[in-house]
């Protein structure tokens, strides 16, 4: 970011609404795509995006203008998306993801249904790393930064998610 953007970030920290709108316009698409990867539903992603930018504005005093706004925003969005997954899970009895992307028709339908059920039974903190690492193929470093966790913890959570999915599939009579 150049000097112009440094000024913009400083204005944002001081509560300038125009600066906030400029930052929103600049980062909206990037943050939306990140949230969409996690919540997997376009309408929910829009709600989480609004919530994320609102949280950013409320927490602007904690932002250091010398750091990356995009990375800070992604962290806030990840937490908001995680809260969304937890809320959906509470209200839908174990269902964590509202998938609106059609499944691949060539996969075995029974096995696909089983993995869908198994995945939705994962705790949200394992779901989020599994979706980013195993489905969206995001680098561990980026996931770790977004979750504000060490890379080792992310790897360990992916491993635990994998084991939990295998166990759940095994219980349903499938072997991946």
């Amino acid at each position: 970011m150049g000097h112009h953007d440094d000024d913009l970030l400083a204005q944002f920290v001081h509560g300038d609404e125009g600066a906030f709108e400029s930052l929103f316009r600049e980062f909206e698409a990037e943050v939306y795509r990140w949230i969409r990867r996690i919540v997997r539903d376009a309408s929910a992603a829009e709600d989480v995006l609004v919530e994320s930018f609102w949280r950013a504005y409320r927490g602007r005093a904690r932002f250091d203008p010398s750091r990356s706004f995009g990375a800070w925003m992604r962290r806030i969005a990840t937490n908001a998306a995680l809260d969304h997954l937890r809320a959906v899970r509470r209200h839908a009895g174990g269902r964590g993801l509202g998938e609106d992307t059609p499944a691949q028709p060539d996969a075995d339908p029974e096995l696909r249904e089983a993995i869908t059920i198994a995945f939705r039974r994962l705790p949200p903190r394992l779901q989020i790393v599994a979706v980013l690492a195993l489905i969206e193929d995001q680098p561990y470093g980026e996931i770790a930064e977004a979750l504000d966790l060490p890379v080792g913890t992310v790897k360990s959570r992916v491993f635990r998610a994998t084991r939990a999915l295998e166990k759940e599939l095994g219980r349903m009579g499938f072997r991946p």
Binding site: R40, I115, P176
Partner: peptide, 16 residues
């Protein structure tokens, strides 16, 4: 195992 599961997951939840 991880790669097998990832492939299976992607069949149910295609990347966005």
């Amino acid at each position: 195992d991880e790669e097998r599961l990832a492939r299976l997951l992607r069949s149910a939840f295609p990347p966005t």
